Simulated assay, not measured.
Amino acid sequence: MEPGSRFSVPEPVQRRAMSEGARGEAWLAGLDTVLASLEQDWSLTIGEALEGGSAAYVAEATDTTGDVYVIKVATPDSGLARHETDMLLRAHGKGYARLLKHDASRNAMLLEKLGSSLDTLELPYPQQIDIMCATLIEAWMPVPLGGEYLTGADKANQLAADILAMWERGGQPCPSSVIETALRYCRERAALYRPEATVLAHGDPHPANTLVLPGTDPVRFKFVDPDGLAIDPAYDLGVLLRAWNDGLEGRNAHNIARARVRLLTQYTQVPAEPIWQWAYIERVSTGLLMLEIGNPESGREFLRVAEALLVM
């Protein structure tokens, strides 16, 4: 916290802002003023920052009647405010946290307050998968005409470039067969992209982005932090599978992983092969990224599983 500042900015948010150069530094320097102006304009009292994110200042905010919400002010170059605001406005609270107010000039959003995240509930991962699948089915929307969203072809090409670059920067930390398979899947997903087969997808659904909707029985969940992609729904399902590494080792790893894909197909009616390919791509990309950002244990696990899934 800077001398005289009222609002303490978490270290990851500070690092993200500083990495954005002069605009990020100016955002950080003016954040106290922005938050104070939002308090006045929206009749709120903003509390201490919540931990967990890096691309925005996030905190609880209480209105004059005592109702509690969540306020979010994104860093200038994250793209978060524009894409997330658009997604949440279109969703109208269906499958996503309800957006109550927003201000594009200040990259600010006021959201309904949800409960605990799925990753804190200590549920078996298969049960978490079921919950996230049900929430995705509710959350997926048609892609609006004229919208500017990253497409499935764009995403596949972007991931291919990132995978190859990270593999080379990291000293080729996994067999070339793993990289070749991931790149082949990227080429297939890009070539098979069809706008008519897309949904407006979350883009990064995982347990920490899946929160309890308070007061529901049976308990329901909503997503937060959507990226907003115009992509086939198999992509979101592949993201769900990328971290389900338990039991994927030895000679049966491939067959077990294929069975998990079939379960998602039965649940969602989304074809199996695209789910398989996106899950493999995401598993390799995530493993390489973990190595690059200094989380070698997790990175090696993702890449070890990706190698085990290859059919020799």
Rank of each mutant, 00 (worst) to 15 (best):
H202E: 10
V284D: 04
T210H: 06
I71M: 13
R283H: 09
S105A: 15
P3W: 09
L150Y: 07
V311A: 11
T286A: 12
H206R: 12
P175A: 14
M1N: 12
D154V: 03
E188Q: 14
Q128T: 12
N245K: 01
G95Q: 06
D225P: 00
D217P: 08
D162E: 15
L164K: 13
G53E: 10
A259G: 15
A279R: 00
Y149N: 06
G299M: 09
P144D: 01
R16S: 11
G299I: 09
G146V: 04
P144H: 08
L240W: 06
P207N: 09
E196H: 06
V224S: 09
A272K: 02
C186P: 07
L38G: 05
G171H: 00
A59D: 08
A36Q: 15
G147P: 03
K222W: 04
Y96W: 11
S8E: 14
H102Q: 09
N245F: 10
A108C: 07
S5R: 12
I281R: 01
L263R: 14
L44Y: 03
A197V: 00
A243F: 03
A165E: 11
A56Q: 07
A197C: 02
W276D: 05
T64S: 14
G203P: 01
I71W: 06
A59C: 00
W27T: 02
E60D: 15
G146I: 02
A29P: 10
T135S: 03
L88E: 06
G247D: 05
R242Q: 14
R220F: 04
A253D: 07
I129G: 08
A91Q: 00
R258P: 02
A253V: 02
Q266R: 14
S298W: 12
G250W: 10
L288F: 01
V284H: 02
R220C: 03
L150S: 08
L192K: 04
A61H: 00
P10D: 07
W140A: 02
A160C: 03
H92F: 07
I256T: 14
V224L: 02
A49K: 03
S19A: 15
E84V: 01
T65L: 12
T75A: 04
L213T: 04
K155R: 10
W42C: 08
S298C: 12
A259P: 02
E168Q: 15
I46M: 07
L110H: 08
V239W: 04
G152M: 04
R304D: 11
N107C: 04
N209C: 02
E25S: 15
I129W: 00
C133R: 10
S116K: 10
E84M: 06
P173H: 08
L100V: 04
T151K: 07
I293A: 08
I293F: 02
P218V: 11
P76V: 00
L44G: 05
E20Y: 01
M312P: 15
P195D: 09
Q172T: 12
R262Y: 11
G53C: 11
G79Q: 08
D236V: 12
I137G: 06
S8H: 12
P296K: 12
H102C: 05
L248F: 06
A56W: 05
P205V: 09
I281Q: 01
M18H: 14
E2C: 10
L241R: 08
L229V: 08
C186H: 07
S285R: 13
L200H: 12
V199Q: 00
D204F: 07
H254Q: 11
S298V: 04
E11A: 14
D67G: 05
D236Q: 11
L241T: 07
I281P: 01
Q14F: 01
V305L: 09
E196F: 03
